[in-house]
Amino acid sequence: MSRIFSFLTATRGKGRLHWTDWVSYGYLLFGVLLMFGPVVWLVLSSFKTPNELDRFPPRFLPYAQDVAEVEGFEEPLLLFTVTEGDLAGQIVAQTRRAAGRAEVVLPDDPENRIRMPAANLEAIEGIAFATENYTSLFERFNFLRFFWNSTFITVMATLIMLLVNSMAAFALSKYQFRGRTAVLLMVVGTLMIPQTVVLVPLFLITFELGMLNSLWGVIIPGAATPTGVFLLRQYMITIPDEILDAARMDKASEWKIFWRIIIPLSAPAIAVLAILAIMWRWNDFLWPLIVLTRSENFTLQLALNSFQGELQTDWPSLLAMTVLTLLPIAAVFMFLQKYIATGIASTGGK
């Protein structure tokens, strides 16, 4: 026990690496494999042809059989190497295959059809990224529709939330008025009411407002968040009151002060909240599942979930769609990683 902890707590071994450093790096590299591995596997799999996806055991990289255009044939033909017989070692193109026998031609001599047992042929394969999985999403599914729904909900909900929450935070940080403590307590109170425990009445209210099966039914109920109010208020408190007073001297209206001074000065906090909101809304699942029941209103998350539930799971399309769903979040992560970490650590929410 003591040894385990000596490696966990020791700091740098002087000069060369201590054995505990090796164990630490081992753990971290295993972590890289465990955390990134599955995502890498998903992305690689999404570029495999249906045949390749059915293959067991699977291969790491996506392979596809080489094909060649041969004169006199409309479709490109699959290429094979002959393993036995007169033509052993030659590359041939297959024109037909039935009952264990294949009809092939030499690519240079397309007129001369040769028959041989299919067992004598070995497929020529190369690494190839099959993009059909992706293109078929646009042809066979309403992918753009789902993408649009998700984007619309995310953008609108984020904008509304930022405006509403920053207005409230402004009032709570820069005004002295009776009832301020009561309002603050009320905001704390909403922390204790997660959406998951009021689903039924929330459903009724959304229904009464005529927002069932509408994207607004997803956007509006979550537009005000206690987390957002607290985060922004905490930041706005640090803005000196003198700036506001100076603006009032210049006869700026309160709204102008809010919009022209407070908002730009709170930009870092607003950026953090915006990233969190984008993440929450893009990944949101339970409430959209309840509100949006018609498939033309589905968000990407709902579409993914409903396709995987179908009897015959169409993995090629599903994998491609999963990749496209995580892509925007992955992009946000790459560019704004630092903000996300601070945002999540300071609000305790995700």
Binding site: L163, V164, N165, M167, A168, F170, A171, L172, Y175, V183, M186, V187, G189, T190, I193, V198, L202, I205, I220, P221, G222, A223, A224, V229, F258
Partner: peptide, 14 residues
Amino acid sequence: FLLPNLVLFGLFAF
């Protein structure tokens, strides 16, 4: 300034 937020809290939480 508080109104929109409070209406949303009231309607969708309390």
